[in-house]
């Protein structure tokens, strides 16, 4: 691939199906995302899969496109890989659709594609089909991405937000709030910088290790927008159980605590892109936790609470001072678009 000048930009013609569009695919997309299914460039990819399939889709409109610890490309792969992983599925294939505003710099597109390629490599998934559309200036805010994903669910796995039962343990895979704070710190007009990187990461290997320890994980969910508080509330409502957690046991990095103090945020409400919450039977908890701690994205994992029959549908947190209070879902926060 030739080195491009930073002045080269996306033109409407890149999306018109003509020569420029073909050049875009062949010179920029294929070298970075190559795999047999994609390389054929047929109208649809023909795929092999056996067993129960998991299928998911998500769109990414994060602003800014580049942030500490990642960019929209990495996010669009990790987000969909993680959605599949939260059903216990092994992610296999992704689709990739881009909507690009006319005038978008090609060097930034290359940077995003490289990051998509690297994330796919880490997560061991392939982009097998894709599409690019270009819209006129002002008709989109720079670049949007949609990815869909297919994965295979192992036979004995049955994970759902409705499966939590009384006595289960609640495991959190690591420190919370980093993605939301990293994005907020980059926000236009916000004169503030923190040494916090987004935690954006593919969690499929972590989940695979957890399922090796015990295939009978009850619930898995990634606390993205709305943070840990919203995820715990969703699980409590879906399973009609109470969830009791302890503030002391929830890991939060100092920099995140400090930024939250400054901005008036509650870390429980701040977004994550590389964390998961698992609800598991009490007899499996220690083994699963031990296996999580051996992995890159689970070293800070901790049991933060348990499922009870008190106050079904509610999440209670024992504060550091001792009393318990209700933890509610996030309601309307003024963060920029974060995923």
């Amino acid at each position: 691939m030739s080195i491009q000048s930073s002045r080269e930009v996306i033109l409407l013609a890149h999306g018109s199906g003509g020569r420029l569009g073909h050049e875009l695919v062949e010179e920029r997309f294929l070298p970075l995302l190559t795999n047999p299914a994609l390389d054929k460039l047929d109208d649809s990819a023909i795929l092999e899969a056996e067993g129960r399939l998991a299928f998911t889709t998500d769109s990414y409109v994060v602003n800014p496109l580049f942030f500490p610890g990642g960019d929209i490309g990495k996010l669009s792969v990790c987000g969909t890989v993680n959605d599949l992983s939260m059903s216990g599925a092994r992610p296999l294939y992704l689709s990739l659709s881009l909507i690009i505003e006319e005038g978008f710099p090609l060097n930034e597109l290359d940077r995003i594609l490289r990051s998509i390629g690297a994330a796919c490599q880490e997560a061991e998934v392939n982009i097998v089909t894709g599409d690019t559309k270009v819209v006129g200036r002002g008709q989109a805010d720079r670049l949007y991405i949609t990815t869909s994903g297919i994965g295979v669910v192992p036979p004995q796995v049955d994970i759902s937000g409705a499966n939590a039962s009384v006595g289960d343990k609640v495991i959190l895979s690591g420190t919370i709030g980093e993605h939301g704070i990293a994005i907020t710190s980059q926000r236009e007009g916000l004169q503030f910088s923190v040494p916090v990187q987004s935690d954006c990461a593919p969690l499929n290997r972590l989940v695979a290790r957890m399922l090796e320890a015990s295939p009978s994980i009850h619930c898995l969910r990634d606390p993205t927008r709305g943070g840990l508080a919203s995820t715990l509330n969703e699980l409590a409502r879906q399973s009609q159980v109470g969830i009791a957690v302890e503030e002391d046991r929830i890991p939060v990095r100092e920099e995140v605590t400090a930024a939250c103090e400054l901005l008036g945020f509650d870390p429980l409400h701040v977004a994550n892109e590389g964390k998961l919450v698992a609800i598991v039977g009490p007899d499996d908890a220690d083994a699963i936790l031990a296996r999580m701690k051996e992995t890159r994205y689970g070293v800070d994992a901790a049991i933060i609470g348990e499922v009870s029959n008190r106050y079904p549908g509610k999440v209670l947190m024992k504060t550091k001072l001792g009393p318990s209070r209700i933890v509610d879902m996030l309601s309307g926060e003024l963060l920029p678009r974060i995923c």
Binding site: L316, R325, I326, S331
Partner: peptide, 10 residues
């Protein structure tokens, strides 16, 4: 009050 209600409110 809405967000941080104590257990007693339940």
């Amino acid at each position: 009050y809405y967000q941080f209600a104590g257990v007693e409110s339940l």
